[in-house]
Amino acid sequence: GLTEEQKQEIREAFDLFDTDGSGTIDAKELKVAMRALGFEPKKEEIKKMISEIDKDGSGTIDFEEFLTMMTA
């Protein structure tokens, strides 16, 4: 499992990506986040990433899903 410290770091990354503070990361926010990390993702790639992570089919990534992605 994760230490509380690791969870906190992932939470901070999540909050950075969640620019509108909605508690979820949408495609637009993910794209901005990827760019910040030096990637140039295409729209299809973003969609694919979200569909792989987005277990509940909401079209957005919540913290639990993000946590799973970061620790996979």
Rank of each mutant, 00 (worst) to 15 (best):
L2I: 07
S22M: 03
K55D: 04
K48G: 06
K48N: 08
D26W: 07
A36P: 02
E64V: 06
E29H: 14
T60Y: 06
E12M: 06
G1V: 12
E64C: 11
K31A: 15
E65T: 14
F39E: 02
E5F: 11
D15I: 08
D26M: 12
T3I: 04
M34S: 01
Q8I: 07
V32Q: 14
G21R: 10
A72T: 05
I61N: 00
T3G: 07
G57T: 05
Q6S: 05
S58T: 10
E5I: 10
I50N: 03
E5M: 09
E40A: 06
F39K: 05
G38W: 02
E9R: 15
G59N: 06
E45V: 09
M69S: 02
R11S: 02
S51E: 12
I61H: 00
A13F: 10
V32M: 15
A13I: 13
E52Y: 13
K42Y: 07
G21W: 05
E65D: 08
T71I: 11
I46A: 02
L30I: 08
G23H: 01
D18L: 04
I53P: 02
E52S: 13
G1L: 09
M34E: 06
E12Q: 09
K48M: 15
T68N: 09
E52W: 15
F39T: 02
I50T: 05
D54S: 12
T24M: 08
M34A: 02
A33Q: 01
T3S: 08
I10E: 00
Q8L: 12
E12A: 15
A13H: 05
T3W: 04
I10S: 01
Q6T: 05
A27P: 07
F17I: 10
L37K: 01
V32W: 15
E4H: 07
F63E: 00
I10G: 01
D26V: 04
L67A: 03
A27N: 03
G23R: 02
I46S: 02
K7C: 11
K28R: 09
E12N: 13
M70F: 11
K7P: 01
Q8D: 07
D20G: 05
T19V: 08
R11L: 04
R35T: 12
S51Y: 05
V32F: 15
E4W: 10
E9Q: 15
P41H: 09
D15K: 10
K48I: 09
